[in-house]
């Protein structure tokens, strides 16, 4: 099967410091891959290298021709002087038909946010607005960079469930950076553990047992993994943002 995106012997530097080295990576259609690793390990940099947002010192990134990708960044600092509704945001950089915007908003659970200002949104609402924009072009590959930063636990669980639903509907591959280990492990086909290079990768259960992984995260995550599996059957409604007293 032709991979959607492929990196060969990637080297990324910031100044003279190596951020990532010897990275070989590929993702197949419909695959769910999660990148884990400690802070500053180069997880986000890997995603940015794949979308072309950081210069590559060595190696090569190849995309399937005409690959449609959707990217959800970790966070956005929006200057309060910039007026921007969610609906207008979805029209960047290309204007989309109203019906397509409404569909993407609905899929992301942001249907009631179209007329709201980006700067007025809560953390959860903002993530859904970003997700809606990423879904607009019907991506074959969805890239998510720690998409639940700043959300509380029910909010995180709801967001991840939404990603699962989206993937089922669109049939897209998902590449996700996360440090919510317990949340991530259960849903992924493959986990990549990064710390300046790829320490280990494979099926979640295999990676959780790998000594490289345990050296980074300790062995306590096995229990957390089991815990999350139970949580998975819980029913949290998406309106969890109400807990903060906000209108959704």
């Amino acid at each position: 099967m032709i991979p959607l995106i492929q990196a060969r012997e990637l080297l990324v530097k910031r100044g003279s410091t190596q951020i990532l080295r010897d990275v070989d990576f590929q993702i197949a259609p419909r695959e769910i891959v999660t990148v884990v690793g400690p802070n500053g390990s180069g997880k986000s940099t890997l995603l940015k290298a794949l979308i072309g947002a950081v210069p590559i010192a060595q190696g090569k990134v190849t995309r399937k021709t005409g690959l449609r990708l959707g990217y959800v960044p970790q966070s956005l600092q929006i200057d309060p002087s910039l007026p921007m509704t969610v609906g207008r945001f979805l029209n960047l950089p290309r204007k989309s038909p109203r019906a397509e915007r409404d569909l993407a908003l609905a899929e992301a659970g942001a249907e009631d946010l179209a007329d709201r200002q980006l700067t007025d949104l809560s953390g959860g609402q903002f993530q859904r607005a970003l997700l809606a924009r990423a879904l607009l072009n019907r991506p074959e590959l969805l890239l998510l960079d720690e998409p639940t930063t700043g959300l509380d636990q029910p909010g995180q669980a709801a967001f991840y469930r939404r990603i699962e639903t989206v993937r089922e509907q669109l049939g897209c591959a998902v590449l996700m950076v996360s440090h919510d280990l317990h949340v991530v492990m259960s849903a992924s086909d493959r986990v990549i553990c990064v710390n300046g290079h790829i320490c280990c990768e494979g099926h979640p259960e295999v990676v959780a047992q790998a000594k490289e992984y345990r050296a980074l995260f300790g062995s306590g995550t096995g229990g957390a993994l089991a815990l999350y599996r139970h949580q998975h059957s819980h029913d949290h409604d998406d309106s969890c943002d109400h807990a903060h007293g906000e209108q959704t």
Binding site: I51, A53, G70, Y71, P73, L76, L82, M84, L92, R133
Partner: peptide
Amino acid sequence: TLSPDLAYAS
């Protein structure tokens, strides 16, 4: 202006 990373991705 909104986000260089989103720009690169598009």
